[in-house]
Simulated scan of single mutants.
Amino acid sequence: MFTHRLPHGGAIVLSGGPGAGKTSLLQALSGLGHITVAESGRAVIRQQQACGGDALPWRDRQAFAAAMLDRDRRQYRRHCDVKNRSWRFFDRGVVDVLGYARLERLRESAAMRWAARRYRYAPEVLMLPPWPDIYRHDQERKQTLAEAERTFEVLWDTYLDQGYQPRLVPRGTIRERRDWVLSHLGLA
């Protein structure tokens, strides 16, 4: 468990496969006044769909990964390269892009590997497991549940490979998960 000392500026990553409840958990943390940072993948998809771009996971996965990495680096610099030392909760981090490249068997660019080493978060990454009961498709989430489960496994291994300590967030209501995170971090 963390103490009130803010590891890596209090930058906490919530990760896992799609449809596991990360965004809902982030919204619950934001509702209590915590700083939260939305995932880059959905923002890139929305932006690319709006402009008719090809950097989409169903068109050009390598370009999609590069666009996510660019956005993740900007998000990190915006929220972590500042003097403010309050807790920040990220819906995914730069390591997720490296995990995506591994999942999709894309070329792991030097920029991906460098960013994973340079932009560091708290050593413990909070991982939300696949959860069939809440998994839903939408305009941006087109993966099957099996793909979501595989994504979780690859991300878990990628975070381990990058020197992080993945920690499973138990299933439960949004409030139960929020309270677990806060208790686990010593913020309850």
Rank of each mutant, 00 (worst) to 15 (best):
M1G: 13
M1E: 08
T3D: 10
H4V: 02
H4S: 08
L6C: 06
L6W: 02
L6V: 09
L6N: 09
P7V: 07
P7D: 11
G10K: 06
A11L: 15
A11Y: 02
L14P: 05
L14R: 12
S15M: 15
G16T: 08
P18L: 12
P18R: 08
G19Y: 06
G19K: 07
L25A: 14
L25N: 14
Q27I: 05
S30L: 05
G31Q: 11
H34A: 09
H34Q: 10
I35G: 00
T36A: 12
A38F: 02
E39C: 10
E39Y: 12
E39A: 14
G41A: 15
V44N: 09
I45G: 05
I45R: 12
I45P: 02
R46H: 07
R46C: 01
Q48E: 15
Q49Y: 01
Q49E: 15
A50G: 01
A50S: 13
C51S: 13
G53A: 08
G53Y: 03
A55W: 07
W58V: 03
W58P: 02
D60S: 13
Q62M: 10
Q62A: 15
F64I: 07
A65I: 03
A66C: 09
A67K: 11
M68A: 06
R71K: 13
R71S: 09
R73N: 02
R77C: 13
R78N: 05
D81W: 15
N84I: 03
N84V: 08
R85K: 13
S86G: 13
F89T: 11
F89W: 13
V94F: 07
V94D: 09
V94C: 11
V95M: 07
V97Y: 04
V97P: 00
V97N: 14
L98K: 03
R105Y: 00
M112T: 00
A115R: 03
A116H: 01
R117Q: 13
R117I: 00
R118W: 03
Y119D: 04
R120D: 03
R120V: 05
A122N: 09
L128C: 15
L128I: 07
P130F: 06
P130E: 10
P132L: 03
R136V: 08
H137G: 00
E140L: 10
R141V: 02
K142T: 12
Q143Y: 00
T144H: 03
L145N: 01
L145D: 01
A146D: 12
E149T: 09
T151F: 04
F152Q: 04
E153L: 08
L155W: 10
W156T: 02
T158W: 06
Y159P: 01
D161Y: 02
Q162D: 04
Q162T: 00
Y164T: 03
P166W: 11
R167W: 09
R167V: 15
R167P: 00
L168T: 13
G172E: 12
G172V: 12
I174F: 11
I174Y: 09
R177P: 08
R177F: 14
D179V: 05
V181H: 14
L182G: 09
H184I: 00
L185T: 06
G186Q: 08
G186L: 06
L187G: 04
A188V: 01
